[in-house]
């Protein structure tokens, strides 16, 4: 288990503000840290700003007319504003986007190989990593010649993660891997994320709406609401926090609440900012 005080910080997001289209202020001062070798969860409802935060780090924001207007993002001691996504991938940071974004008309294997686009360490090393990805995702080996567009949602999520692994990353920014998947598949995917973390030493910044699963697998968590971090702490503590239990894990005395109920009720609560 990771001990916050001793581990090295890989990524540091300091009080960033993000604006889309020059007018829409989406992040209003988000700060977080990602520890080397850890799984850090970024939690919060739909529209909270999780994806925006990840894209600010991977620098995919530019292509969506988004801009970091305040604060700084530091990876391994370097300011990374102004780099392009390819530079980030070369530095070991790759994003797995929400909704998987497989290349539909490419085969599963071709999809995986695109992950190695920026690498220059030779065919042999890439081939070895392809084998490794197949070892973690045996299902992908079976489907390697299928067009990705015709594989199931779970398989596409595996393709997306496997493709990121092909870049030999140090940190994966993983956006909503559980989205639209059956609970059993969600467990399977998170199980693999955990072993990639433990065996391959890949650090994760994981955006999730599924707080329950995310907090079981993560080491540390941040909760985001309307573009602000409203709470953070070790995952085990967040899991036991009564507010988190009530609002995000849907466990109150009256039983499980629908998400909408929880949210409108929540607005009256105080730990807003």
């Amino acid at each position: 288990m990771l001990d916050g005080s001793k581990t090295e910080t890989l990524l540091e997001v300091n009080n960033i503000e993000v604006i889309y289209n020059h007018v829409i202020l989406v992040l209003k001062g988000v700060s977080l840290k990602v520890a080397k070798g850890g799984i850090t969860a970024l939690l919060g409802g739909n529209g909270a700003g999780k994806s925006t935060t990840l894209k600010a780090v991977s620098n995919l924001l530019h292509s969506e007319r988004g801009e970091v207007t305040k604060g700084s993002i530091i990876y391994r001691g370097d300011h990374i504003a102004g780099l392009d996504p390819a530079d980030m991938v070369k530095r070991g940071v790759i994003q797995v986007m929400e909704g998987r974004h497989c290349f539909e008309h490419l085969t599963v294997e071709e999809n995986l190989m695109t992950g190695a686009y920026t690498r220059s360490d030779g065919r042999g090393a890439v081939a070895a990593d392809l084998e490794k990805v197949y070892a973690y995702f045996p299902r992908l080996r079976e489907r390697r010649t299928s067009q990705a567009g015709y594989t199931s949602g779970g398989e596409q999520q595996m393709v997306a993660i496997g493709r990121a692994m092909m870049a030999k990353p140090e940190t994966i920014l993983l956006d909503e891997p559980s989205m639209g998947l059956a609970p059993q598949l969600v467990e399977e995917i998170f199980g693999i994320v955990k072993s990639l973390n433990e065996q391959e030493g890949v650090s994760f910044l994981l955006a999730e709406q599924n707080t329950n699963v995310a907090l079981r697998f993560a080491h540390y968590g941040y909760i985001l609401e309307s573009g602000r971090v409203v709470m953070d702490g070790p995952a085990a503590e967040l899991r036991e926090n009564p507010d988190v239990k009530e609002f995000y894990l849907g466990m109150s005395d009256e039983g499980r609440k629908s998400f909408r109920d929880v949210r409108s009720y929540r607005r009256r609560k105080r730990w807003l900012s």
Partner: peptide, 24 residues
């Protein structure tokens, strides 16, 4: 070829191509 594959990847999904480090 690698560039040919990248070209088809871009044709399929610009965003995803960017995310793996392909320069549009």
């Amino acid at each position: 070829t690698k560039q040919g594959r990248a070209l088809r990847a871009v044709a399929d999904d610009h965003q995803a191509a960017l995310s793996v480090g392909i320069s549009l």
